[in-house]
């Protein structure tokens, strides 16, 4: 159970400056947690659906996605 708790701390961070809107992360996300913003770039739209599997990070051809620890809340 602890492993799952740890994973909840992870965040999908997308660097919009590097994203080329190819849609690979959105189409291959097993839970449909990613969407597009008004510029067609990928965004982490549904964090509740996300299981933090990291497939988007592995498959992003632009190296724009990172699965990282959430910054500490103020």
């Amino acid at each position: 159970m602890e492993a799952i708790k740890d994973k909840k701390n992870l965040q999908v961070v997308i660097n919009a400056g590097w994203c080329k809107s190819c849609g690979i992360c959105i189409d291959l996300c097993p839970k449909g947690a990613l969407g597009r913003d008004n510029r067609d770039k990928a965004v982490w739209q549904y964090p509740d659906k996300c299981i933090r599997c990291g497939l988007c990070e592995l498959r992003c051809p632009d190296l724009a996605i990172t699965l990282q620890e959430a910054e500490e809340e103020e």
Binding site: G17, W18, C19, K20, L58, R59, C60, P61, D62, L63
Partner: peptide, 23 residues
């Protein structure tokens, strides 16, 4: 491991070369 000054890289959207580089 990247020379970030050259990013975003010039490969087309959806090109697999970036995925190979990441791996």
């Amino acid at each position: 491991y990247l020379r970030q000054r050259f990013f975003p890289q010039l490969w087309c959207a959806g090109c697999g070369h970036g995925q190979i580089m990441a791996s």
